[in-house]
């Protein structure tokens, strides 16, 4: 201790020095590496889009916009179109959003509005997180051996007595839209629940107090004040959940039946863009490959647009909070 003290006073062996050559080099090095990494990320992101687009270009030239209105996917005649897949993707995702979205928002309310003691709601949050962590193939397997068998008698009954409604116009023979939608809803539920929980947490305490102070019941406070105040965050959650549903692949490839047809029936097999890629890619020839790349590009475009809308809505909710 003493030597250090005296050293600081008059020992001139040590004094602050200019940064050494090594210091300067490492400083530059860290910057270069960081900027390099950033550059690679940007390049990669753009290159992914470019690569898929250029691989798709033969098909774009060949089929043009007709690709989006043609329901045929005929390898032998080399006629390709993805109308059925777009229909299947949007239809399954919207239905899943209806179920998974409302359950997700409901669970977020249940966990954030004081219905449960703190510890219990933490356990429940863990359940939702585990739901999110289970891999998509495992859901697919579960769908095949649990959901489809459980659904079959329900579907048969609905078809028999309500077959005149287009939704139930076919019977469930195995894989089909309904089991795929159920599993898909489970997969987007945690996304919607997590993001809307954040949105509810951002509702200021003073606003909740105002509602309860007026003598609102919990239901009135939630539906009339808390939900409207958090509405843009909840909307963002739902749109981002939609983006997640659009790109989901494996569970759908295992459960939806992979038949390209446009049908309203919940029990008919269908096909989505992602499941088309999953099932046809490995054995595709040159021409079909280009068509698949075109389909991939369409999927990319749809999801990027949906996610951009979601991000925009979320940014609105952040702005609102700032006021």
């Amino acid at each position: 201790m003493k030597s250090v003290m005296s050293g600081a006073k008059n020992d001139d062996e040590f004094s602050p020095s200019a940064p050494s050559f090594y210091d300067v080099l490492s400083d530059r090095g860290v910057r270069w590496i960081a900027f390099g990494a950033g550059g690679i990320v940007v390049f990669l992101g753009l290159y992914i889009i470019f690569e898929i687009a250029s691989a798709a270009s033969p098909a774009i030239k060949e089929y043009g916009l007709r690709f989006f209105v043609d329901t045929r996917w005929d390898v032998s005649r080399q006629e390709f179109g993805i109308l059925a897949e777009i229909w299947g993707t949007l239809y399954s995702s919207l239905l899943a959003l209806l179920i998974g979205g409302s359950f997700g928002v409901g669970i977020a309310l249940f966990l954030s509005q004081g219905y449960l003691p703190n510890r219990l709601s933490q356990i429940f949050r863990l359940v939702v997180e585990m739901l999110a962590a289970i891999p998509s193939v495992v859901y697919g397997l579960w769908g095949i051996y649990v959901v489809i068998p459980a659904l079959r008698p329900v579907a048969a009954w609905l078809h028999e007595y309500f077959g005149f409604i287009p939704l139930f116009s076919t019977s469930l023979s195995g894989p089909g839209l309904a089991p795929a939608v159920i599993v898909l809803s489970i997969m987007i539920l945690p996304t919607v629940a997590a993001i809307s929980q954040d949105a509810f947490a951002q509702v200021p305490q003073k606003v909740k107090e105002a509602a309860y102070g007026m003598g609102a019941t919990r239901k009135q406070a939630i539906l009339k004040v808390i939900l409207p105040t958090a509405s843009s965050g909840v909307m963002g959650a739902i749109v981002l959940g939609f983006g997640r549903a659009l790109g989901e692949t494996m569970a759908l490839a295992m459960l939806i039946g992979n038949v390209n047809q446009v049908s309203l029936s919940l029990f008919a097999p269908a096909k989505t863009l992602a499941s088309l890629l999953a099932s046809n890619f490995p054995e595709a020839g040159q021409v079909e490959l280009a068509a698949l790349m075109y389909a991939a590009l369409a999927l990319l475009f749809i999801t990027v647009v949906v996610n951009a809308i979601g991000a925009y809505i979320m940014s609105l909710s952040k702005k609102q909070e700032a006021i």
């Binding site: 107090e209 105002a210 102070g213 007026m214 609102a216 019941t217 004040v225 105040t229 609102q320």
Partner: peptide, 29 residues
């Protein structure tokens, strides 16, 4: 109880609604 004993808080806390709807809130519930 809270419907008969009203409360005004430290921080002004209007709802994110119109002025009219804010005042009508308690009447509507």
């Amino acid at each position: 109880v809270r419907r008969h004993i009203g409360m005004v808080f430290q921080q002004p806390n209007p709802f994110a609604m119109s002025i009219y709807d804010n005042v009508a809130f308690g009447l509507r519930i």
